[in-house]
């Protein structure tokens, strides 16, 4: 059923196209420029640079941006599994994300349970021997 038929909906399949950088993608809610269709009451494109503070919020901001690129790419690849450009970008971003998550756990606290290995034994808020999974603020606190 490649062609359109009566009495059933059709949505054109997306072609790989121009992308936003990681920061802008998170701000706009998609990496794909062609899928960015804002509502009339919303402001234009906002820049999404992470503040250069050298602290946990800067690193978390970078993790949020790169993780979102991977979220959006995952859904694209689910439906376009043979797109070489998307796959190459996925691999590249995944490697960076792994590195950033590891760095975050070593410097601050683990974001995932498998990052506990990177912070355990370090002087956390509860001391060297406490379980570090509970370190760090809850994500809904907005800190």
């Amino acid at each position: 059923m490649k062609e359109t038929h009566l009495a059933i909906a059709s949505v054109p399949c997306q072609q790989w196209g121009p992308l936003y950088d990681d920061g802008k993608a998170l701000r706009q809610g998609t990496i794909f420029q062609e899928l960015d269709l804002p509502f009339y009451v919303t402001e234009g494109i906002t820049e999404g640079q992470c503040a250069q503070k050298g602290n946990s919020s800067q690193l978390l901001c970078q993790i949020q941006q790169i993780s979102f690129v991977l979220d959006d790419l995952t859904l694209y690849l689910d439906m376009h599994s043979e797109d070489g450009q998307a796959l190459a970008m996925y691999q590249e971003k995944l490697a960076v994300r792994d590195q950033l998550k590891k760095e975050f756990a070593q410097k601050f606290h683990p974001l995932t349970r498998d990052c506990v290995a990177y912070c355990q034994g370090q002087a956390g808020v509860h001391g060297d021997h406490a379980f570090c999974w509970q370190d760090g603020p809850m994500p809904w606190e907005g800190v």
Partner: peptide
């Protein structure tokens, strides 16, 4: 809101 539009495209596909 932007995610709703992206998800619509993926469900269409």
């Amino acid at each position: 809101r932007a995610r709703e539009i992206v998800h619509f495209q993926r469900f269409g596909e």
